[in-house]
Simulated scan of single mutants.
Amino acid sequence: MLKKAGRLAPVVEMAGQAERDAAAKLAKLQVQLQQAEQQLAGLEQYRNDYQQQWITRGQTGVSGEWLMNYQRFLSQLETAIEQQRSSVQWHARNVEKAREQWRQAYARLEGLKKLVQRYHDQARQMADRQEQKAMDEMAARAGHLNRPKPGDIS
């Protein structure tokens, strides 16, 4: 059983490396998602500030040219926000895929570790049984030697 466990050591190591790689990839993608979300929040805040500027400026009166420029820029800003929302969704899907890959790698590693532990436990049980058998044989021999022989007077 220990031989089986020993033969699995390289497989366990490879599974461990795969799990660590999957975890690193997941962490990297989570950072990218956070950055995309921050960019989206920044764009939305900029749009809100720009709209507030419109309200403030509009109270004093604006020219038709200023209004057209405002609407054109606001439209471009809305387009950028929608593109960034799509980017956030794309990053979120990548994070979920990476999370699932990590879960699978982790489950494989844990399964292999449990198998190795089971082999170790079986080897220990086998060694314990052999040791008990040897002790029983020694006790039987010792009991046989300590028995009075026929004709011995006690």
Rank of each mutant, 00 (worst) to 15 (best):
E65L: 07
L43C: 06
G64R: 09
A9L: 09
R57W: 07
A9M: 06
E44C: 01
A15N: 04
V62R: 06
Q51M: 13
N48W: 04
Q38F: 04
T60R: 14
L43H: 11
G61P: 01
Q34S: 15
L74G: 04
A27H: 06
V31M: 06
L8G: 01
Q71A: 11
R47C: 03
G58L: 01
G58N: 10
Q35P: 02
V12F: 02
N69H: 10
Q34F: 01
Y46T: 12
A18Y: 03
A24R: 08
Y70D: 03
V11L: 13
L43S: 01
K25I: 10
L43N: 07
E37H: 03
Q34P: 00
A24E: 14
Q45D: 09
L26N: 03
E44L: 03
Y46A: 13
E19D: 12
A24S: 13
L33Q: 11
L26F: 11
Q38D: 15
N48G: 07
R72N: 11
Q34E: 15
G64Y: 07
G58I: 02
E13Q: 14
Q39V: 09
D21C: 01
Q51E: 15
T60K: 13
I55H: 11
E19T: 03
T56P: 01
Q51W: 05
R20A: 15
Y46L: 10
N48M: 08
E78N: 15
Q53L: 11
M14Y: 03
Y46F: 08
R7F: 05
S75W: 08
P10I: 05
T56C: 00
R72C: 00
R7C: 00
F73I: 01
V11W: 02
M68C: 00
R57H: 11
D49Y: 08
A41V: 07
Y46N: 14
L33P: 04
L43I: 01
R72A: 10
Q32V: 05
D21R: 13
Q45T: 09
Q71E: 14
R57Q: 14
D21S: 13
G16N: 08
P10L: 05
Y70V: 02
E44I: 00
E13K: 12
T79S: 14
E19P: 04
Q17R: 15
T60H: 10
L43P: 03
N69Q: 15
L77T: 06
V62I: 11
K25F: 08
L8P: 02
D21M: 11
Q17F: 03
A24Y: 01
R72L: 09
P10R: 05
M14P: 00
E37L: 02
Q32R: 10
P10M: 07
Q45M: 09
G16Q: 04
D21H: 12
A9F: 07
Q35R: 13
L29Q: 13
A22M: 09
E37D: 10
E44M: 06
W66L: 08
A9Q: 13
Q71V: 06
A24M: 06
L33I: 00
W54R: 10
G64C: 00
E65W: 04
D49R: 11
P10N: 04
L67R: 11
M68H: 11
E37R: 11
W54L: 15
I55W: 03
Y50N: 02
L29W: 07
Q35I: 07
Q17G: 06
A9H: 03
A24I: 01
R72M: 03
S63K: 03
D21Q: 14
A27C: 04
Q34N: 14
R72T: 12
G58C: 05
S75N: 14
E65Q: 10
N69I: 02
L43M: 12
Q52K: 12
P10A: 08
Q71R: 10
Q30V: 00
